[in-house]
Design a protein around this nucleic acid. Structure first.
Length: 593
RNA sequence: GGACCUGUGGUGCAGUUUGGAGUGCACGCCGGCCUGUCAAGCCGGAGGUCGCGGGUUCAAAUCCCGUCAGGUCCGCCA
């Protein structure tokens, strides 16, 4: 082999170049390439073309005959780079100005025909892709996604290092902390009947690191939650997990913003996006969700004032939320009925719809056409049109219910009817601040923690912790990108007396607290600094950056929605001996052998 | 736990509404031809338990029930 002029031999192994990198300027060079046969075109006895593919791209190799070489064979090609003959340049190919001629072909490994084409053009069946994920990963889409993910990780590490954070690993074999999501359990071989659990997140571990004077910690941490899967949820996922001492909410938001924008720049070519900020209450009110997609309008409208004295029972409730759907006044009855069903499925008692038509004598110059319009006074109709900012041709939807429900139902309908595809348009990062400390009242009559029980209440609202807990805001904050919840964080409680007060409000008694989080409370007795942090979901973040609707597309080996891995067959029964060693007796019998 | 969508040669689909012979289309595969193609082209060939089980019917890919797998969503995800 002649010495490669560009990269060092050590870096390239048994090749001199990558396939996709050859250009006209390489003409005349002797090269040796390795890769997979992307396609083969034979032209009789003494001319054939082999498109050789590696992760950098494809280059055309001209060979004498290619009959013993098949698609997806792994081969090495030695030959000479030369300009393509006049008229045969392929502008669709990055290497299209050149080809490799006088080729010697060595078959490194034969291959069966692939179970599905190695091309983005064909949308292969999901189960088949996962069963042969190693083939699926060869496709441009997966290559691009995984490499983008690696760039995001690298950018995040750079940004965190720059901000003085220290990467620390925390245990995967953790201890049960009942509360929150279902945990994966790992039986102990040494103590039958006892279990480790896999961490839902390193939440408590990182707080202990703060007590341990690490000052600023981060980790690209694997988290595991045994909950049902969704397009944006897998059993195991990765978070940028971070925690810092002697900082406030603004500091943490700054740390995370820096890392996120660094990653955004590493993954995309767009200009540095801005980051907005709104309160939780405002997000719920205007968008009906705590993870608003700000890329489009269609904000929720409050019809309470307009309908304060209405005779229409369907719109009598604590809160009436409406939505203007521009230009959709022509929707057919079956489509409208489907919307009503959708609203009911989301928990609403019903959904009122009204087409805005020309006419009427209101200032807005429109009238409502609806099954219920005869129950609405003229003032109410013009009031609705004005409040919604509607014009003839629009559709107006309204739900009356308790405030939270009215907001959430209309918020979902807003997404159903207006949400752009993932990645479309300029990105809209938004910080959601001033979350409530408690989510609502549980069956036991006690408030339930909205975030986790170590979240610091907003000092301004402390006086109401016992008397009016639901009005207490917390120092908790979420980062949302285009309607995806990327992550959340908070300033933590670091004093034992305050933690006791919170536990008391939550109805967790001393004994329960000791058994669940005793080691954390112990640690706080030895001097805990004020601290706070954040956790950012890498899978979701990369999915949005890669314009993917499903995080499976940015994970090398994901699970199906039922939690199975079609490639390995996991989960599987253990054999009797392994079960006995772990002291496990229950469950279905392993298959007979 | 629940709702909905999908399942047809190796792959992607049509056919299912309104039952009438597995007739189909494209890609791939195998063989042949072909000296400038590039998702090559031309000729020929092989390849099917219509996811599986049951029911209705003279007759089921098609209708009904159940079930499995994949997907989307609700519940769940401190």
């Amino acid at each position: 082999m002649s010495a490669p002029p560009v990269a060092t031999p050590a870096a390239l192994g048994m090749r001199t170049d990558y396939c996709g990198t050859l250009r006209a300027s390489d003409a005349g060079r002797q090269v040796r390439l390795c890769g997979w046969v992307a396609s083969r075109r034979e032209h009789g006895e003494h001319l054939a073309f082999v498109d050789l593919r590696d992760h950098t791209g494809v280059v055309q190799c001209v060979v004498d005959h290619a009959h013993d070489v098949r698609t997806e064979y792994v081969i090495a090609v030695a030959g000479t780079v030369r300009p393509r003959p006049e008229g045969t340049v392929n502008p669709a190919l990055a290497t299209g100005e050149v080809e490799v001629g006088d080729c010697q072909v060595e078959i490194l490994a034969a291959a069966d025909p692939p179970p599905f084409p190695v091309t983005d053009r064909i949308d292969a069946d999901e189960a088949l892709r996962l069963r042969h994920r190693y083939v699926d990963l060869r496709r441009d889409r997966m290559q691009a996604n995984l490499r983008m993910r690696a760039r995001v990780n690298a950018a995040i590490r750079t940004a965190m290092d720059r901000q003085g954070f220290t990467e620390v690993e925390t245990p995967l074999l953790w201890t049960p902390t009942p509360e929150g999501s279902r945990e994966f359990a790992v039986p102990s071989r040494r103590q039958h009947g006892s279990f480790y659990v896999l961490p839902q997140s390193p939440q408590i571990a990182k707080q202990l690191l703060m007590v341990g004077e690490l000052d600023r910690y981060y980790q690209l941490a694997r988290c595991l939650r045994d909950e049902d899967l969704r397009a944006d949820r897998q059993f195991e996922f990765t978070q940028l997990d971070l925690e810092a001492s002697f900082v406030g909410q603004e500091d943490v938001i700054g740390f995370v913003s820096e890392a996120v924008l660094e990653a955004d720049a590493a993954a995309t070519a767009r200009p540095r996006p801005s980051m907005d900020r709104i309160t939780w209450a405002e997000a719920m009110d205007r968008y009906g969700t705590d993870k608003p997609d700000l890329r489009f309008g269609m904000e929720l409208v409050d019809l309470g004032p307009v309908l304060a004295g209405t005779e229409l029972k369907a719109l009598q409730a604590a809160s009436v939320k409406a939505l203007r759907v521009p230009g959709q006044g022509g929707l057919g009855r079956s489509r409208l009925d489907a919307l009503v069903e959708r609203a009911k499925g989301l928990g609403a008692k019903g959904l009122v719809w009204a087409r805005v038509v020309a006419g009427g004598d209101g200032a807005s110059g429109g009238a409502l056409e609806s099954p219920v319009s005869r129950f609405l006074s003229d003032d109410e109709q013009t009031g609705i049109i004005a409040a919604a900012g509607a014009a003839p041709g629009d559709l107006v939807l309204a739900v009356a219910d308790e405030h939270r429900r009215a907001c959430s139902v209309m918020g979902q309908l807003r997404l159903d009817l207006g949400r752009p595809p993932v990645g479309e348009g300029p990105p809209r990062y938004v910080w959601i601040v001033d979350f409530p400390l408690f989510d609502g009242i549980g069956d036991d009559g006690r408030p339930e923690a909205a975030h986790h029980p170590f979240t610091m209440p907003n000092p301004e609202d402390l006086p109401f912790l016992e008397s009016d807990p639901l009005r207490v805001r917390s120092l908790a904050y979420d980062l949302v990108l285009d309607g995806w919840e990327l992550g959340s964080g908070s300033i933590r409680v670091h004093r034992v007396d305050m933690q006791r007060r919170i536990f008391a409000a939550l109805g967790i008694d001393e004994e329960q607290a000791q058994s669940r989080f005793g080691f954390l409370l112990d640690a706080f007795r030895f001097g805990a600094p004020p601290h706070g942090g954040f956790a950012l979901g890498i899978d979701r973040f990369v999915a949005v950056l890669a314009r993917e609707e499903n995080i499976r597309e940015v994970i090398a080996f994901p699970k199906t929605q039922s939690g199975a891995d079609p490639m390995t067959g996991a989960p599987k029964a253990l054999d009797r001996q392994a079960m006995a060693e772990l002291g496990i007796r229950s469950g279905p019998a392993p298959p007979a052998r």
